[in-house]
């Protein structure tokens, strides 16, 4: 199974009286790493939540799988909302996320090897018994990356996964991303680190309520485009207001 193509067609989202996304049409190629960049409040996370069915949006979002049976979708959120004092180890978190058997009984035998492999992949194998709440932000982010590998994903949705990562974590993330690409996994990657996007993504799109650009990162992440992207009001809106 390889990753699906994703089609956003005329997607709009209004929360209260605020327009978060407006008439967004975008196609993400199967098996590509597609980055979404833009200012805070530009609608990046809302786009992800719409894709995950968490927000009632207008328009159509479609996953075009290569076979009749849908593959595995994985998601790496920015964080988990939990009491950091909870007596919950890294292994417990993976058990809660990945297995049916109650997590307080420990990992199921069938998944122990997968837990080991995923934690090893993100450099957290020696911290499986550590309390999750006692980990640093970067270490927690690595655990969230590890959970996305169980089971092996066909579509991976990443919501700013590098925010808390240190240099070693960023290196691990980069290797992971390239490995997933080799395996034909489609990756939708919301990111604010433009240097990383330029190096790792196949395509990048700029989002500030509207889709401002979409293309190869080397072309679209030019200084003029970025000025447009991170301006307080998108230039298109300013031009429309002036005319």
């Amino acid at each position: 199974m390889n990753g699906p193509a994703i089609a956003f067609e005329g997607v709009g989202l209004i929360l209260g009286r605020t327009t978060v996304l407006e008439d967004l049409s975008l196609r993400i190629a199967a098996g590509s790493i597609h980055a979404v960049v833009g200012p805070n409040g530009g609608g990046k996370s809302s786009l992800v939540k719409s894709l995950l069915g968490q927000m009632p949006h207008r328009g159509t979002i479609r996953l075009d799988w290569r076979s009749d049976k849908p593959g595995v979708v994985a998601y790496v959120p920015q964080s988990l909302d939990f009491d950091s004092g909870l007596p919950m180890t890294v292994e417990d978190v993976l058990a809660i996320l990945c297995q049916q058997r109650p997590a307080f009984l420990g990992p199921s035998r069938a998944l122990v090897k997968q837990f080991d492999a995923a934690l090893d992949r993100v450099g957290m194998a020696d911290k499986r018994k550590r309390r999750f709440g006692a980990l640093s932000g970067g270490e927690r982010q690595r655990v969230l990356l590890a959970q996305a590998l169980i089971p092996a994903p066909d579509l991976l949705i990443l919501d700013e996964p590098m925010t808390a990562l240190d240099e070693a974590g960023a290196q691990i993330f980069e290797e992971l991303l390239l490995d997933l690409k080799d395996r034909g996994v489609t990756v939708l990657w919301v990111e604010h680190d433009l240097a990383q996007v330029r190096r790792l993504a196949d395509r990048a799109c700029g989002l500030n309520r509207h889709l401002l650009f979409d293309g190869p990162p080397a072309e679209v992440l030019a200084p003029e485009r970025l000025l447009d992207l991170f301006a307080t009001a998108p230039r298109r809106s300013l031009l429309k207001a002036a005319s």
Binding site: V48, K49, L52, G53, Q54, V73, A74, Y75, P77, S79, L80, D81, F82, A95, I96, L97, Q99, Q100, R101, P102, A103, F104, I157
Partner: peptide
């Protein structure tokens, strides 16, 4: 409760992640 223990917990940790799962 026992078969749904993990799901009940996950629903409160991160609804989006829970939905994906």
């Amino acid at each position: 409760t026992l078969p749904l223990f993990n799901r009940l917990l996950l629903a409160s940790f991160n609804p989006a992640l829970a939905t994906v799962r």
